[in-house]
Amino acid sequence: MNGLSAFQWLESTGVGRAIRESTWLFPAIEGVHLLAFAVIGGALLLVDLRLIGIGLRRVPIAVVARDAERWLLGSLAVMAVSGTLLFLSEAVKCYYSPPFWVKMSSLALAVLFTFTVRRRVTLISDAAANPMRDRVIALTSIALWGGVAWGGRWIGFSG
């Protein structure tokens, strides 16, 4: 089974068909996806701005990061579920959409980076000791998640 036929099969599943054939389901799921987008963005930006030194200042990075992580994980879960449902309803369109592949590659890198390097620096080690490193990590995080957001918005304009 090659990639395209896998995507065709995904689109033909009952879930994908139900969403595609309903007037309200796709927009409603998209709405949930967008609400979670605001929350995940806030949870990421809160920590990244703190790392750069232009957000919260009086609070240790670890405190901000630990708290933000709950909201990050929660909104990421909502995004993943709603995003998968949206994908199932138009898998073949996604297959031919370059922004979709940009989004998925950025997402893989962003998740990997966020839960390894960024997590280690913000939660475990003493982040205040190295402002330059913190800035690089924050800007990398913003760039990677920005790629996800770019791809996500542009899937809608493609095809």
Binding site: F37, A38, A149
Partner: peptide, 10 residues
């Protein structure tokens, strides 16, 4: 939205 609502939500 990320800046405006995201940080507002916090």
């Amino acid at each position: 939205l990320v800046v405006f609502v995201g940080l507002g939500v916090i």
